[in-house]
């Protein structure tokens, strides 16, 4: 196994996630794409951990932290989506434009 096969797969998934974040209108799907990006990052972290033969397993532990933070992010994100949905009967991100003055 060469290192780059993992890294490039990670890069590919990351870019796909990025595409998804940009094109999706439904907020739930945007969050889904963010998860995809985070999964790609995890592949990178674990691949580097194996490549560097890290004695303190830093890559794996950071992958675990990413998973944890992602779980928190999904929880908060979905709560926000739920709140918006309750107020506006829609979960489309392009209708959330109140930040415009």
């Amino acid at each position: 196994m060469i290192l780059n096969q993992f890294l490039i797969l990670g890069a590919f998934l990351f870019s796909l996630g990025m595409y998804g974040v940009l094109v999706r209108r439904n907020a739930v799907l945007v969050l889904l794409s963010v998860e995809l990006m985070l999964a790609a990052v995890n592949i990178n972290l674990v691949a580097f951990d194996a490549y560097l033969r890290d004695a303190i397993a830093g890559g794996q532990i950071f992958a675990l932290f990413v998973i944890t933070v992602a779980a928190a992010e999904v929880g908060i994100g979905l709560a926000i989506v739920l709140l918006i949905f309750r107020n506006r009967q829609s979960a489309n991100v392009d209708e959330m434009d109140l930040m415009k003055l």
């Binding site: 290192l3 890069a11 870019s15 490549y51």
Partner: peptide, 21 residues
């Protein structure tokens, strides 16, 4: 997204080539 992929991909190939893991 494509630009991002190309950028990262080029960098990786440049940096690690065919390093074994």
């Amino acid at each position: 997204a494509g630009a991002m992929f190309l950028l990262i991909g080029w960098t990786l190939v440049d940096a690690f080539g065919t390093e074994e893991v």
